[in-house]
Amino acid sequence: MKKSPIKIMFYLILFISTMISITSTSWLGVWMGLEINLLSFLPLISNQSKYNNSMIKYFITQTLASVMLITSIITLMINTFKCKEIIIIMMTTSLLMKMGAAPMHFWFPEVMEFLEWKNCLLLMTWQKMAPMIMLSYINIDQWFMTIIIIMSAMVGAILGLNQISLRLILAYSSINHLGWMLASIQVSMINWMWYFLIYSLLTTLISLSLKSININFINEMFNSKNNNKINKLNVALTFMSLGGMPPFIGFLPKWIMIQELMQSNMYLISTTLIMSSTITLYFYMKMFTSAGIMSIKETKWSKNNSYSNKLMMLMNTLSTMGLMMSPIILK
């Protein structure tokens, strides 16, 4: 796995398999795309010995979900089972398990803890896309999805409070945002698309920034060994945007979602999502306010103007100024 052409091949298969699942006209084609996706992602997270534990956990969980999915698909094709609602719930549960939604979320933080940042980024964004689009094709019971949305939002918010690992914080944040995205699927796929695109942008910016300054824990965020203050400021502002603070673009999809949920009379879901988003914003802010108040000997501001820093500054400007530009975008 040290040879880059092999990695490029697996990345290419990973992207193509997701396209196969999305564009398939049958559930067997969907299942086949998800299986190819699994088999192409496993080598990417097993390139070093310390990641084998994560690979085994990911493989077992995804295999269990795949078995549930193919069983429910075959049962629906045979058309002899009278209670189709149970089969549909079983199919939905398998897709939710593949995404890591609560209460089937226990594997997700444990796998994220020992992955590289680029694989964490794939797990939080690209790997969730196909199962969520598949959920939009299923006529799911409203109360079942309400329970899943509320549990995902609250579990992601509450369990992220006492974490010191940045990977775990992003993992539980992803579970919380999954609740928002599942709610957006129930309302409109256009709203889901906007939410997923903005969430992917912010998560990409955070992952690239944390990888570039090589920090993994909260106490390393303002460590004097890291002299790139611009990059740290980028991370702080992007976390605020990810939490949904109003001046940033991360507030835009949540604003749209709250409006749509209130118009659809989903008051319980909207109230829960707002409360959970407030909790996540609290532990995002706690990371930077505590680090900023502490008396630490800081180095001078870095004047490094590399291409990667300029690119991240451009992405952070889009994150910061995006809410003001949203009337132009949404026209």
Results as ranks from 00 to 15, higher is better:
residue 167 R to Q: 04
residue 152 S to P: 02
residue 156 G to L: 14
residue 176 N to D: 08
residue 249 I to M: 00
residue 260 E to R: 05
residue 234 N to L: 07
residue 185 I to Y: 12
residue 263 Q to W: 13
residue 254 K to A: 02
residue 216 N to Y: 15
residue 281 L to F: 03
residue 244 G to I: 01
residue 192 W to F: 12
residue 219 N to V: 09
residue 228 N to E: 06
residue 170 L to D: 05
residue 156 G to S: 06
residue 147 I to G: 06
residue 154 M to Y: 05
residue 203 T to P: 04
residue 217 F to I: 10
residue 185 I to D: 11
residue 248 F to W: 03
residue 233 L to A: 15
residue 182 L to C: 04
residue 237 L to E: 08
residue 253 P to H: 02
residue 204 T to N: 10
residue 155 V to N: 11
residue 198 I to Q: 02
residue 173 S to H: 05
residue 145 M to V: 02
residue 257 M to K: 10
residue 169 I to Y: 04
residue 156 G to H: 15
residue 243 G to T: 05
residue 197 L to T: 07
residue 184 S to P: 03
residue 149 I to G: 02
residue 175 I to D: 00
residue 227 N to S: 13
residue 203 T to V: 07
residue 267 Y to D: 06
residue 226 N to G: 00
residue 183 A to I: 11
residue 195 Y to Q: 03
residue 248 F to N: 00
residue 237 L to M: 15
residue 230 I to M: 11
residue 269 I to K: 14
residue 169 I to E: 01
residue 280 T to H: 00
residue 274 I to R: 05
residue 238 T to C: 06
residue 268 L to W: 13
residue 284 Y to M: 12
residue 188 S to N: 15
residue 199 Y to P: 01
residue 207 S to E: 01
residue 250 G to L: 03
residue 268 L to Y: 14
residue 186 Q to C: 02
residue 253 P to L: 12
residue 237 L to P: 03
residue 214 N to T: 14
residue 210 L to P: 05
residue 263 Q to Y: 11
residue 159 L to P: 07
